[in-house]
Design a protein around this nucleic acid. Sequence first.
DNA 1: ATGGCAGGAAGCTCCTGA
Length: 256
Amino acid sequence: MRIAAWNVNSIKVRLPHLLDWLVTQAPDAVCLQETKTEDAGFPEQALREVGYHTLHHGQKTYNGVAIVSRTEATDVQRGIPGYADSQSRVLAATVAGVRLVCVYVPNGESVESDKFRYKLEWLGSLNAWLGTELSRYPEVAVLGDYNIAPDARDVHDPAQWEGKVLCSEAEREAFRGLLALGLKDGFRLFDDGAGTYSWWDYRMNAFRRNLGLRIDHILVSTLLAQRARACAIDRSLRALERPSDHAPVYMDFTPR
DNA sequence: ATGGCAGGAAGCTCCTGA
């Protein structure tokens, strides 16, 4: 089984890349972030034609999350229960016995901003809800754009980024709070090195110079971690024409 | 201190992203 998370930065623009990737990589499920469209504009038909079911929780212009899966998803949840949020950032569903929680964590803008306070409050609500999800489902994967680089290994220039949004201590503490629920950082199950990133700024030739951050993650419950076989980031999509600024992170599991 | 790149919506520019 293969699952993946990818911030597409507009599903309309990135649809050709997504379709190619689905055909060549044949993942069982992909969680998308920043679809930037209302549900009516989501390319459900094109995805069906390559063999995938879709779930979408979208909105106009900003945010928007989707789950694209080989088999039909069940027990669908849009948003964090009990947390009133006008922004479409969470979509959860069960696919092939695994509880998938697709997340698009707020960016935060800067540590002094109201958006940063919203980010931390949002992460607190996510943490509380994931506690109940983990008690309900043995195999859980929380995957998406976390907008947090967990530690210095995940940052091309830790000194330059120190204390800044995406790298601040408050955000990293919130990330460790998710791990404290019993979730494991899938990538770190297989690689403890520095310099592997999932996002590169469009500007300053950042991708070619590998000036990136690892901010897209797949967190897995203890039981699901026992089946984990690999976790990697597919940089090839970032090198295409008109790329998303994020690359997909994917994870493979042995069958039950 | 600022812009640099990209997408969307709208409009000949601005907001947001990370």
